[in-house]
C-alpha cells in the first residue's frame, strides 16, 4: 500500500487533460464551423473511443508501439522514444481514449453560441483568432470546464488500455486502477479498499464541484 499509484494516476490525468484541452479547442472549432466534406468522417473518428472497447485501443497500441513495427521502430531508432511500457505511451493512449470527452462538450459549446454574436464580431473587423479568444471562449466557459473535468475523470478511471500496454511497472505505469486489480488478485482486500476509497472520494469531489459550478450554486461565493 503506497501513495505512488494514486499520485501516478493523477499525474497521468493532469498531463493528458492539459494537452487534450490545448488540442481540442482548435479541433472542436474546426468541427463546429468547417464545411469540409471530410467532417463527418473526422467526427466519427473522434467519437470512436466512446464505443470501442478499451481492449481494441490497447491491442492496436501494443502492436503500433512495439519496436518491431514501423511506427514503434522509427520512434525508438530516430527519436529514442519507447512508447510501450512507458509513461509517455500511457499519455498518448489516454489522450485518444479521452478525446471525445473533451471534444464533445466544447463542440456543443461552440454550436450553441448564436451566430449573431460571431457575425457582429466579424463586422467589427476582428480576426478569427481574436473572435475565438475574446468572444467564443469566454462564452463557453461551462463547456470548457465540463470537458476538462470529464477528460480528467475518465483518464483517472482508465483501466483496459493501461492493462494492455502498461506492463504494471511501479512508479511508471502502475496506476491506481491497475494497483486495485492487482491487490484484489493477491487477495489483499485492505490495500484494494484503500486505493478504491481514495479514488472514490477524490472523483466524487471533482464531479460535485463541476455540478455545483455549472448549476450556479457557487455564484454567491464568487462572481
Amino acid at each position: 500500500m503506497s501513495w505512488e499509484p494514486l499520485i501516478l494516476t493523477f499525474k497521468l490525468a493532469l498531463v493528458t487533460t492539459l494537452i487534450l484541452l490545448v488540442l481540442s479547442i482548435p479541433l472542436s472549432y474546426w468541427l463546429a464551423y468547417s464545411k469540409a466534406r471530410a467532417k463527418p468522417i473526422i467526427q466519427t473518428l473522434v467519437s470512436m473511443p466512446l464505443v470501442l472497447p478499451p481492449t481494441v485501443l490497447g491491442f492496436y497500441f501494443l502492436i503500433a508501439f512495439s519496436p518491431n513495427n514501423a511506427l514503434g521502430g522509427w520512434l525508438s531508432e530516430t527519436l529514442g522514444i519507447q512508447l510501450v511500457f512507458s509513461f509517455p505511451g500511457l499519455v498518448l493512449a489516454s489522450m485518444l481514449y479521452s478525446l471525445p470527452f473533451m471534444v464533445h462538450p466544447i463542440l456543443s459549446g461552440f454550436t450553441g453560441i448564436h451566430t449573431s454574436l460571431r457575425e457582429a464580431a466579424v463586422l467589427m473587423g476582428k480576426s478569427k483568432f481574436e473572435i475565438l479568444l475574446h468572444v467564443l471562449l469566454p462564452n463557453i466557459k461551462p463547456a470548457l470546464l465540463t470537458g476538462t473535468v470529464l477528460s480528467f475523470a475518465h483518464t483517472v478511471g482508465e483501466f483496459g488500455v493501461v492493462l494492455m500496454i502498461g506492463g504494471n511497472i511501479p512508479g511508471k505505469t502502475k496506476v491506481a486502477s491497475i494497483a486495485i486489480y492487482d491487490e484484489v488478485e493477491a487477495l489483499n482486500y485492505g490495500a484494494a479498499n484503500f486505493y478504491s476509497l481514495v479514488l472514490f472520494a477524490i472523483t466524487f469531489c471533482i464531479l460535485l464541484t463541476v455540478y455545483l459550478i455549472n448549476g450556479g450554486y457557487l455564484k454567491k461565493f464568487w462572481k
Binding site: L62, I63, F65, S66, P67, V84, G167
Partner: peptide
C-alpha cells in the same frame, strides 16, 4: 507471452 510475441518486450 503477448508482450513478447508482439515484440514489445525483447
Amino acid at each position: 507471452n503477448q508482450f513478447m510475441v508482439t515484440g514489445a518486450a525483447q
